[in-house]
Amino acid sequence: MDITIKNLEHRYQPNTPFERVALDGINLSIRSGSFVSIIGHTGSGKSTLVQHLNGLLKPISGSIQIGEKVIRSSEKAKQLKELRRRVGIVFQYPEHQLFEETIEKDIIFGPMNFGVSEEEAKKKAREVIKLVGLPEDYLNRSPFDLSGGQMRRVAIAGVLAMEPRVIVLDEPTAGLDPRGKVEIMNLFYQLHSAKGLTTILVTHSMEDAALYSDEIIVMDQGKVFHKGTPVEVFKDPVQLRGLGLDVPETVEFVLKLEEKFGKRLPRDVFTVEEAANVAVSLIRKEGEE
């Protein structure tokens, strides 16, 4: 489903002394089936933006079109049910997503709410709990008696069980252990490619944004600052740092080499292998000179 956002504005607590502009004049289009990352400083409006994608937040003005559906400020919750089935969001803090007394009930809630039979939903629960790296016997446990990373995994399982067409991930790997981070990102990427999902990743990991995205959206103070491919976005380290961001560690390494050796090197380097290649060929060339 293509997503088109026009002149979106959002203010929290409007018309009170606490009013705060969180989004201002956002215009974006996201192609169906693409993988898009959103990066930006703390408080730049990323979570506010993505919560508009399934109607959790309503615009003060402007519109969001997802497939055929157009959301405006006047939208009623009832009209959004179909949208919520299509667009799944993994929240920034998993605690905000978990509410049932067992993990199983938590995971089957979404699918059953949208008409899947209990039996079918339970089968799905057993499938997704394994996908996120937790043992099946966790299904009977309370989601609140878990470690931070385990809660994160359950929250992800709940969204996967809904089989959304658009998956929105708000810092999905915060709190995961290093292996978990890699496994879960690979899982998202694999689902993305295999099922043609539209994937929107909010992240402070410049590495993940560089590795997985077709396009990256850079936010600054409630506005879209820039949109481009990873190569385009990570071209200008000084500007990024000014926005509270940075380049991926692979690019940082290349920049350090450039400085030390006084040479211009390829900067579109986003994997460890590629970074090693740059260093190895640099040393070999220097040897020949």
Partner: peptide
């Protein structure tokens, strides 16, 4: 045990593989 290595260490392992 489910952990990983810092970037610099991973990079060095990769360079070792390439004979550096």
């Amino acid at each position: 045990i489910g952990l990983d290595l810092p970037f610099a260490v991973k990079l060095q392992h990769q360079m070792n593989k390439q004979g550096l």
